[in-house]
Design a binder for these strands. Sequence first.
DNA 1: ATCAGTATTGCTAAGCGTTTGCAATTAGAT
DNA 2: ATCTAATTGCAAACGCTTAGCAATACTGAT
Lengths: 132, 132
Amino acid sequence: MHTQLNRRMTKQRHIIIEELRKVTSHPTADQLYEMVRKRLPRISLSTVYRNLETLSAEGMILRLDVAGAQKRFDATVENHYHIRCNHCGRVDDVHMEPINEIEEIARRRSKYQSVSHSIEFSGICPDCFGRG
Amino acid sequence: MHTQLNRRMTKQRHIIIEELRKVTSHPTADQLYEMVRKRLPRISLSTVYRNLETLSAEGMILRLDVAGAQKRFDATVENHYHIRCNHCGRVDDVHMEPINEIEEIARRRSKYQSVSHSIEFSGICPDCFGRG
DNA sequence: ATCAGTATTGCTAAGCGTTTGCAATTAGAT
DNA sequence: ATCTAATTGCAAACGCTTAGCAATACTGAT
């Protein structure tokens, strides 16, 4: 016996997932809304929000709580680091091994339990750097 | 010749700084507002917001852009890591050496310029763990 | 294939943290 | 003491996100 989710696959939900999987750009809810709207013009923004919420809650997609900015969403669930452009706000993946050892250090020093970590890099992206 | 700031030390600004220096708890704007209000009952919340903004812009204080949560403020400016309780939202310092080497790795892999990093730990704080 | 029941939708309005416009006040230089 | 721009308090606006609700449409059972 396990938790019954009773989820339905509506065309809205289906297309939201599909569109999110098409890109690697970590779109915000409203960016994804615009993408989905091309195929489903009558979808509402709250439907997009609600699905991103439920899908990330069940671990189907990843929600990036970017510091001091809009939430972003990612169809790639495996834990990885991100870098955010200080100029245009875009978020890219950084491919490197997760440094899990620091969690043990933090756990000892802080007395917290169940410690996890995330690293957010920031800088100037190639595009913004190019055009000064 | 250097940038002229033309800042004035109002009693509001003065007390905001003082109260922030009294604590190590990384208060949010409204928490600090309540603290300041005890000494300056007629201060407005926007004054607190405006001062926290200008003070952090000039580097007098540190603004913590906590992922997916309210901004928090810190009178300690030196770079250090934080840990956030997933249960009550409180934020504590984690005393450990900053791992600056990872910035070079991220710079090479991402092609971004002027890369900086921040690590946010999260977990369950001793208080929340104690009372289940 | 039809049905029933409830998860989900679209719409709108509300929520929350934060920022802004503006007239009144006040720090700080002369 | 006087001047002037920085700052304040208030209220209203803002941007992102969530919630209420009646209408719709999945899905599992018949």
